[in-house]
Amino acid sequence: MTTQNVSANGRTAIGQQLVRWGRRPFHDIGGGLLIALVIEIIVFWSLSPNFLTFNNITDGIGRGMVVIGIMAVGQTIVIIAGGFDLSVGAVSAAAAITAASLSNSGAPFLVAVLGAMGVGLGVGIVNGLITGYGRINPLITTLGMLSIVRGLAQLLTGGREKVIDSRTFLDLGINDTFGIPNIVWILFACFAFFGFLIPRTKFGRYVYAIGSNDRAARLAGVRINRWRLVIYGASGMLAGLAGVVTTVRLGTAAPNFNTGSELAVITAVILGGTSLQGGKGRLLGTFFGLLFIQILRNGLVLLSVRSFWQLIAIGTSLIAAVLYDEWRRTGLTRG
């Protein structure tokens, strides 16, 4: 009798564990996005013969999503931490110009990349200083920074493009490894790197703690303002890397690069289930949100829909995602 009970309990426990384990990857993402993604794929597949081709998947979708994807990794971290970073697009342009200038003046590839990421890191740290120590709303801070950085980029280049001479840059944009474009590998590496660190380090834990209740974290002795420097610094650095990738893809650097890209970036993050309130979210969710946005952009291009429809579609997705999040949250509180 007793043994029977034990084994029965044991079995249910294992069963529950399996169910939890199976759900785990999708915990917080919400089934809604995955269903929307499947529907989206079916729709474009049936409307466009070019949609599910190898070339479109690696190029139109894969290469096309790298720049906003890299920025979305940083944005996810910032939003989970209760912040916001509107400056990423402008930072990527400034970083692209930095990379191009360094490279054209003879610096090795790696130095040019590090220089670009350094510019991003610098801007990110300033964002962190102003929002943390200065206690200024992050939307306002990073909106101001967007304008400042964009303006500086125009000023320093005289508004002109810089054409890249270096072969390494151009090759990186063209070459594949195991059939997957190298810049897509860079995107995967960013997701993998932070996806690995966040659950395993103090950094990751404090990102959630600061977003959940920064006062409580501070009272527990977490130096929240220092961590904000790290958080915004990471976002800036990733935006810098995104700028390098833009240069690699286009072979030039221009001060108006990625204008308005923050819209797609933030939409990918919010679609992925990261809460605007902070404290909640996952990079895996952002990855699916990114896929959704990129497939939408790519599909509309394939259907030769005029480009302003892209803006309308992305804006609609953003608002729908926020509504869905709000509805899920208040539904939960009521229950």
Binding site: G211, N213, G221
Partner: peptide
Amino acid sequence: ALCDDLDATANIFMGRE
């Protein structure tokens, strides 16, 4: 002064992980 989105363990060891 708890972080509601974190679990008991994370809260208890907050700042002293």
